[in-house]
Structures are given as C-alpha cells and as structure tokens.
C-alpha cells in the first residue's frame, strides 16, 4: 500500500472540510474492507484518507413512527442481529446473512456496503478501462462471465452490494451531508448507471458523506424475500440475486417492488415484473410470466447467458416465498 495522509474526523463538518480541501484526492474510510483492497491492488491512489470511524453518533438503529434509521457506521453484523430487522425486514436480514463472511460483516458498515466499488476484474486490475477514465471496456470482448446482462452501456460492471439490492426493494432513502448542506435522496435515485456516469456508481460528490439510511415501516401485510446464487457456498458475491417486497391482501398482490442484483451496473428495479403481478394472485402462471418479463430485455455478453435463466429461477423462488 502506498503512503497517504490520515485524517481521523471527529465531527461530520471536519470530515466534509477535509474531503473538500483535498479536491477529489481523498477517500472516506469506514470499515476499510473495500477501500484497503483497492489501495493494495493500486487501482486507487488517494493522497488522503478521511477516517470516519471516529465520528460519534453514527452507530445506531433507531425505530421511530415512520420507519427505522440506521447510522452509516453501524456494522452489517449489528444490523443482522437486530430484532426489528429480523422480524419486520426479513428481506434485508436474508441479504445480510449471505453478504461476505462473518468477520467482514463485523467490520463492514452500512455506508460502506452501499458505496463499495464493483468487483470487475478489469476495474480492479492493471487495465486502463472506461470506468478508470480509459477508452475501452475490456469485458465486452474479454472474460465477462460475471458481468452485466441488463443496463450495460459501454461499461458492463455489476453492482456488488447485496444490501443495496435489498434497500432498493425496501424503498429506503439515504441522508447525505456535504459542503452545500444536507439532503435525503431515495436510494433508487442514489445509484446511477454508466449512461449517466461512467466513472462512478452513485451521485455522491467528492465532499459528500452518507450519514444515515432510512427504511420506511412496511405496510401491514407486507412480505419480503431475497434469494442469491453464488459460485461458492461459504461466501461469495452474487452471480445473481432477486429481491421481492410485496403487500398481499387476501392472496392478491396489492403493491410490489422487484429488484435484481448481480446482473446490472445498479440494483436493477424490474417494473416489467412488477406490472405483471400487481393486482393479481401470485399463481404459478403469473409468477412465470413476471419472471419472463423481468429478463425479456436481457442482453447477455459472450460468457454470461447462464445469468438469464439463473435470475428467472431466483425471482421465481422469491415470488413463491412471498406468496405462501
């Protein structure tokens, strides 16, 4: 790892000032599990790390009348063990249980897990690819077994975060602090595909930090399911995943959000699948139709057409689980 200037921040305003004055040359370090591996691989080379572990008051899970608020520094294992999350947000709980290995979940934070960079081996290796400001995406003609089948545009990374997939399904929002003040953004608007920005996966500016994730209380009758497929069973990133959050009333799906992970540069909301099931009973035929609809526009690369059937299967499974 190369040397850097280390700035522990003791207040949010310190952190923002420290980021701002570095002019794009600083990175936030929370749990460090993603950042340090990028620094070791020498694919990112900031002059300054702004350590936010030292910020007080960003480790909490608070329940209020509108929903649950999770401080950005709360570790994934703390969220996974939380009784409210286990009971009311099974979709998030299931996603966290299959995120990385327990030691990493002890270290990784809420904020870091949604801001982690993609695992594309060209991005993480010595390749001057589009996402690093170069001229070409090597995945198009190269080794693209793990790359995107939906939403690719010049660049074909997949978003690596399981919690992000779950949070989009749960209609969460993120609170962001920066030099210009504070704002809250629906998490769906937080992530951006390569057609909007080829260099990064979200709207965060260089001087901005996430301080909180908010998840509204699910309406009565809501059910959620998350299914993920991984190449290795002990722990691994998603080959594909499917999250379904659905409000059921007398067997009919009144409202629904369907989000696919591991298949697109952002957590991929499938409005096509949602349109099929909304207002209907979740019969086998409807579920089949919805799963087909979700993947209808898939454009596999040379080595990843397996993801199409795999994702349909995972989505079918998630629908089946919320229907019983």
């Amino acid at each position: 790892m190369r040397a850097f200037e280390f700035h522990p921040a003791h207040q949010i305003s310190d952190a923002i000032r420290s980021l701002d004055e570095a002019n794009g040359n600083a990175r936030i370090c929370a749990g460090g599990t993603d950042l340090l591996s990028r620094l070791k691989d020498d694919v990112d080379n900031p002059e300054r790390l702004v350590c936010i572990r030292t910020l007080p008051d960003l480790r909490y899970i608070r329940n209020d009348k509108d929903g649950v608020r999770i401080g950005a520094l709360t570790t994934l294992s703390t969220i996974e063990e939380d009784a409210y999350v286990q009971k009311q947000l099974p979709l998030l709980h299931q996603a966290l249980q299959v995120t990385a290995a327990p030691q990493i979940r002890n270290q990784a934070t809420m904020g870091g897990s949604i801001c982690q960079r993609p695992r594309c081996w060209y991005l993480r290796g010595p390749f001057d690819c589009l996402r690093k400001g170069g001229k070409e995406c090597f995945a198009v003609y190269g080794e693209n077994k793990y790359h995107a089948i939906l939403g690719g545009h010049l660049c074909y990374i997949v978003h690596p975060s399981d919690s992000a997939t779950a949070l989009v399904a749960l209609n969460a929002s993120v609170k962001i602090h920066g030099s210009k003040g504070e704002k809250t953004v629906p998490i769906e608007k937080f992530f951006v595909g390569p057609e909007v920005n080829i260099l990064k996966e979200n709207i965060l500016e260089d001087d901005e930090i996430i301080t909180e994730v908010f998840i509204p209380h699910p309406a009565p009758g809501c059910r959620g399911a998350f299914n993920k497929s991984r190449e290795r069973q002990s722990y691994d990133f998603a080959l594909a995943s499917a999250a379904v959050q659905c409000r059921m009333s007398r067997g009919v799906c009144e409202d629904v959000r369907v989000v696919l992970g591991g298949v697109a540069p952002i957590p991929w909301r499938s409005r096509e699948a949602e349109a099929v099931v909304r207002g209907k009973k979740l019969s086998a035929a409807t579920i089949r139709e919805a799963s087909e609809a979700a993947l209808r526009n898939a454009k596999p690369l040379t080595q990843n057409d397996y993801k199409v059937d795999l994702t349909k299967l995972l989505l079918t499974k998630s629908f089946q689980q919320v229907s019983i």
Partner: peptide, 13 residues
C-alpha cells in the same frame, strides 16, 4: 472481542 480480518484494518484505527 469480535473477529475481524487484520489485513483489512489500518493499524491506526
């Protein structure tokens, strides 16, 4: 008291 991976922890922290 929690297991973490020391290769991904900065000594300073």
């Amino acid at each position: 008291r929690k297991p973490v991976l020391s290769c991904l922890v900065l000594g300073l922290t």
